[in-house]
Amino acid sequence: MMHFILLITFLLITPVANAAKSVPDTIAERVKACTICHDNEDKIERHAYYPRIAGKPQDYLFNQLRHFRDGRRHYQPMAILLENMSDKYMLEIAGYFSTLPLSFPPPEQVSIQPDEIKLAKQLIHSGYPARDIPACSACHGDTLMGIAPSIPGLLGLSRAYITAQFGSWRNGGSMRGQVSTCMSEIAKKLTDDEVNAVTKWLAAQPVSTQPGSISVLSPALTNRCSNIVLGEHTK
């Protein structure tokens, strides 16, 4: 009888024990589906497109995850991956990636003309107030590394990725409908040359590790981008 009980106990416990042994109970293990693309190395060929997500602000990542799932940001592979995920789990995943140490690919080798550099710097640091185009740095920080908790950094991203985002913002509210008062509106005011110059310039910059002096958005910009900045947390 004792043997029988032992055998049964063994049978019941074995699978659980195996699971505990071979699969780490960590968030890193759970999100291997993400890191197969969003890893920190191998940013070449097809991999060059996937943006870094390590070190981006938690609310920014959380908003993007929800937008992919709910069809407000269109990218089918992400939509399928996240289809049956709860807000709560998304927030946890966003938090995890936001705390990962930054690790960036080296700046891209881009051929950029002096007049393009001038144009890019104008947009980055001053914008064109007369055309209602704010400086990039006004929202993304003077180091262009973003402002917590909702505004992403712009450096350490590939030119292909940044260009694709501009394409989405400019070619239709449907792609980024949720930000019609914010980036999509700004992107639509830019000329092709301006978009080209700024994407080249951004991709060619080394990542700054200095903390920026702009850490809070101005009330005007908070208002302008309220649907990003003031996104409600968990439902």
Binding site: E29, R30, K32, I36, R46, P77, I80, Y89
Partner: peptide, 23 residues
Amino acid sequence: NGGFPATTAANPRPYGMPPFQQI
């Protein structure tokens, strides 16, 4: 396409399957 199993009360933090068409 990979995918995460449904998040349910009993399995709130599922382990995901990567979308291999990306690589």
